[in-house]
Design a binder for these strands. Structure first.
Lengths: 228, 228
DNA sequence: ATAATGGTTAAATAATCGTTAACTTATTAG
DNA sequence: CTAATAAGTTAACGATTATTTAACCATTAT
């Protein structure tokens, strides 16, 4: 996930702090929302579903602790990440904060770089791309085995089963020339017999979709997947 | 997940600290492992796969920072949670710590209750039952698990149970192609036997409600949830 | 009880994919 | 240069696979 896809809501009654934190997070590319009390924060959260809420503990109307509890109480938004802001040295209030369901606790005075680091540490796991075991990245394109697509210039190209399997086999030989016989044995199986033009037709269709240079012919020998 | 199922590895060269932290975490029910330097820690991590590692920054043989980098470098254990321990006031070493991939940073002197609170805050999300996100937001629409409803262009579309479950399964595979067999096993269950056209009919009804492009057919392979 | 709803089935229809055949174009050997 | 061989192209066929439709029970609701 990109930073620009991540929304952070800042909640503090002091406009200066809002401005200061917003500036620092904005510089990292995050989308930033602001609210000046817990009540307004809750409305914004329900509406915009931010990924992270940074709450000042001390606020009029509805303080940070109370806001945090409200967030955790509502199943729709309960999994929102929450960071508390508080004055230094109030160790006991930290405990209360975590018990209310905070994910982190940052003490004032705030040092921009430290602040941003903590935010990033908390968001890091959000950004992780779900593990994809089946993606092959080549020079010109990416093959996604599990989705049956090839991505070229940010374009999704879908191949049909036979094309995909043939391509996959050629790619798996990383650049080596493979004879038609080997291709037949590996893609079709030793016992299946098909005409000799069958491969050509599939190769042609792959070339049509991925570009003429994707597969190179070595006349009299076989084919190879293009490399550099 | 229960506390007793969660393993925490403590790494510090001072036996007293190890003892002190271990006692406090043990009281909460966590399983605790101990190592007196980064090198030994790495071996233990590979062997026991703890959920959280608490690393003292200052250590002989292999310091915390280096250990952290090693953990993040190894894909098998890279997702282990990491907390750094350091002396108070070194704000800038915090930044280095987070950049090395830490998830939290605790400064000495350590106050037991605060320490435990931070650990719990970090582990809280680990304990959550995975399937409790009742709302899934996709590109084109939103799925509300709790109400069996899909929202598309501000329109509430209601699917019946089977349609909903099939959709949910497809969505949960995020874009991967799933064979009919897998769909049967996961949506209907291994022992239930229904005709082969049953899936098609449900797919058809989902497409009718959510648009033809919501589910894509990969002929001969299976279906996949569309992702633009 | 009757009606409505949901899940499944069967059968008809449609689309697609893999293959083939016939033909054209390259490449190589004699 | 010509013949022979190998690969490329095209369009069409047919088998397979998917879609659609409507009807049928079994549940659940009225």
């Amino acid at each position: 996930m990109e930073n620009s896809e991540i929304t952070i809501l800042l909640v503090d009654d002091e406009p200066d702090i809002l401005e200061f934190l917003g500036y620092n997070l904005g510089r990292e590319g995050y989308k930033v929302l602001k609210a000046k009390n817990g009540q307004k924060a809750l409305n914004l959260i329900k509406q915009h579903r931010p990924h992270l809420v940074i709450l000042d503990v001390m606020m009029p109307v509805m303080d940070g602790m109370e806001t945090c509890l409200e967030i955790r109480k509502n199943p729709d938004i309960a999994d929102t990440l929450i960071i508390f802001l508080t004055a230094r040295g109030e160790d006991y209030s930290q405990i209360a904060g975590f018990e209310a369901g905070a994910d982190d606790y940052i003490t004032k005075p705030i040092i921009p770089k430290v602040f941003v680091s903590r935010v990033q540490a908390l968001l890091r796991r959000l950004k992780e791309v779900p593990k994809n075991t089946s993606i092959i990245t080549l020079k010109g394109f990416t093959i996604d085995k599990s989705r049956y697509i090839v991505i070229k210039d940010d374009q999704e190209i879908s191949l049909v089963r036979m094309e995909f399997e043939l391509l996959l086999f050629l790619v798996s030989q990383n650049g080596k020339v493979v004879s038609r016989d080997k291709i037949f044995d590996n893609v079709w199986g030793e016992d299946v017999i098909v005409g000799d033009r069958t491969i050509d037709v599939h190769i042609r269709r792959i070339r049509e979709k991925l570009g003429i240079s994707s597969i190179k012919t070595v006349k009299g020998i076989g084919y190879k997947f293009w490399e550099g």
